[in-house]
Amino acid sequence: MSDTAPVKKQSVADEAALLPPVDVIEDASGITLYADLPGVTKDKLHLQIEADTLTIEGEIDLEMPGGMEASHAEVSLPRYRRVFTLSKELDAGKVAAEFNQGVLKLSIPKAEHAQPRKVEIRIA
């Protein structure tokens, strides 16, 4: 109504994005996630863990000559986004990330107390 009303800023999460393909592998020490994010530079990749939600986001940044007209596009949006819910036994504070040639590798270890332990039973 008035000009001073705050303009509702469109949140990043509302924008359309591509769903990157991922591989998720679990072993005794934790979970390893690989995601294909071709075209994303290191500084345009955003990883976030909030409570138990992991968000992977990246903007595609391609060098394009001026005045280029696309004639065929299979990658039709300039960003990727994918959200995962982590389970409780994972240690969100110790996530390690590597990003190389468009492939993201995330290692999410299991919390100490959740790692499998062998229980020795002594026979009296």
């Binding site: 071709p38 000559p65 280029m68 696309a70 004639s71 299979e74 990658v75 040639q101 468009g102």
Partner: peptide, 19 residues
């Protein structure tokens, strides 16, 4: 995945092949 585009001077092909 591939994107193809063109300018009057060139044809540009982008192949999204990570890793």
């Amino acid at each position: 995945a591939m994107n193809v585009g063109g300018t009057p001077q060139s044809v540009e092909i982008y192949a999204f092949a990570p890793g």
